[in-house]
Every structure is written in structure tokens, then in C-alpha cells.
Amino acid sequence: MLFFSFFKTLVDQEVTVELKNDIELKGTLKSVDQFLNLKLDNISCSNESKYPHLSSVRNIFIRGSTVRYVYLNKNMVDTNLLQDAARREAMSARK
């Protein structure tokens, strides 16, 4: 649940998603589910000339398994809190 919980805090923030096929999409994260499927709005492709078919796409649903990276702005993450959350998760798994 940690990553799901984490990504939920990114909803309505702008993120860049790199897919496993090297496509990079920048857009506003609209929703995420437990599989980390993502819904992006107002997307723009960082390499539009290579993937022209995406130039007319505004929003997109991305299957979580196809995502390689999600690039975040530094200030979107509370690292101390994330550490705590990770510890809590590890603790609850241990119990």
C-alpha cells in the first residue's frame, strides 16, 4: 500500500512518466490505483517528433506494468514522512 499511498498524494500534480518503450509523457496525474495504473491529463510527449501519434492525445490511461519511471518534483515528496511510512510498513509486515 505504500506506493499506492504515495502516488495518491501526487494526484493533481504534474509528473513525467517514462514508459518501458521509452516514451516519456508529462501530464497531470488524475488518479492511481493499487496496480499503479495511472491516469494522466493534459499530456505532452517529450519527444513528439518521434511519437507523432501522441500529439493529439490529451489524456491517457497507462497500465502500471508498463511504467519504467515516474519523475517527480523534489518538493512533492516529504522524504522524512516517506521514511516513516516505509518503516511502518516494514513494522506491520514483521508483526
Partner: peptide
């Protein structure tokens, strides 16, 4: 049922606390 929890501060800790901080 996969994305909700009856114990949000435990299983959804980051989101809950983050939102409160925000």
C-alpha cells in the same frame, strides 16, 4: 476493497499524514 482500509493511519500512512501536513 483493495484500495480502502479501515485503518488509514496504518496502511495509508503516507497519504493521510501528508494531506494533514499539506
Amino acid at each position: 476493497s483493495q484500495i480502502v482500509t479501515d485503518d488509514p493511519y496504518n496502511e495509508d500512512f503516507y497519504f493521510q499524514v501528508y494531506k494533514i501536513i499539506q
